[in-house]
């Protein structure tokens, strides 16, 4: 049940022009027979007695020669080259174990980091509960997940906060060609890094973090509707007045960001302290 894994929401999220799923796809539930004239069972389906049934809740999406179902919920299922945000759950002699929201923990070997790690000294670099941006490198049939920290935009996350959304919503968080992330960073002044596993790292002033997380909540709740970018934009604009943070303020703030942030997570010693000037009278707890 693992063939046909090529087509998925991840590629759509990277800015190609496939239509949004909910407009032309049918919701199917486990056990429902699928129309499959001559098609082979793809992901999310099974075959009994010549008939193909859905095995998961999702959207029916025929991709000849396969009939397949795209999941609408569930844990993150890793795919090679996904950039994900993980949290260290264990430090071993030569590797760390990362929780990336997948069915299994992913080992990050010390050779997969830009650091010069001695055996037994992994804890000098990453501790339990530290968060990192890594790339899924290889998967094996037993479900083991290999990740690496070598590459552009990968590394340890300093400061900020991590918000979790459903992995199925990530294409909408990113937006077509990265438009949604761009909207959020522009209107809040926050730094945003999106992992394909549904974890979104936000850094900036408390107010920026608060508003960016609220925007993510909006996307999570209304991700299937049209005009989402506009709605998020109008929400962010409407909340910006209270703390003197319009597009101009955002532009001013972007001066303290290292680089314009798009889909690729920013890394390294990012500016941890929120800009003191940017601190509004907002609440401390966020």
């Amino acid at each position: 049940m693992s063939q046909g894994q090529r087509t998925d929401h991840r590629r759509r999220g990277r800015g190609d022009s496939s239509p949004h799923p909910s407009r032309d796809r049918v919701l199917v539930l486990p056990g429902e027979e699928l129309p499959s004239q001559g098609l082979k069972p793809g992901t999310g389906t099974y075959r009994v007695g010549g008939k193909v049934y859905s095995s998961i809740l999702g959207l029916l999406s025929p991709q000849p020669p396969f009939v397949q179902v795209i999941p609408l919920s569930g844990r993150y299922i890793p795919k090679p080259n996904d950039v994900v945000i993980g949290t260290v759950t264990d430090c071993q002699g030569t590797f760390w174990l990362l929780d990336i929201g997948a069915p299994r923990w992913a080992p990050l070997h010390m050779t997969g980091t830009p650091w010069d790690v001695e055996i037994g000294e992994t804890e000098k670099f990453l501790h339990v509960r530290d968060s990192v941006v890594v790339r899924v490198e290889n998967l094996d049939p037993t479900g083991r997940i290999g990740v690496t920290m070598l590459g552009d935009g990968l590394g340890k996350l300093e400061g900020g906060t991590i918000v979790t959304v459903s992995p199925a919503r990530i294409p909408r968080v990113v937006g077509r060609g990265g438009s949604m992330v761009e909207t959020i960073t522009r209107l809040t002044g926050a730094q945003v890094a999106v992992g394909q596993n549904g974890r979104v790292w936000i850094n900036g002033s408390p107010d920026a973090i608060l508003r960016a997380s609220e925007a993510l909540r909006l996307i999570e709740e209304q991700g299937q509707r049209r005009g989402l970018t506009e709605r998020v934009e109008s929400y962010l604009v409407s909340t910006s007045t209270s703390t003197d943070r319009g597009p101009e303020a955002a532009a001013r703030e972007s001066a303290h960001r290292d680089a314009p942030v798009t889909r690729v997570p920013p890394v390294g010693p990012a500016d941890e302290r929120p800009d003191p000037e940017a601190l509004g009278p907002g609440p401390d707890e966020y």
């Binding site: 049940m1 486990p30 099974y46 998961i56 809740l57």
Partner: peptide, 11 residues
């Protein structure tokens, strides 16, 4: 289980 996206024969 269906809400959790777990693959299964049927509800």
């Amino acid at each position: 289980l269906a809400d959790a996206g777990i693959p299964m024969v049927d509800l």
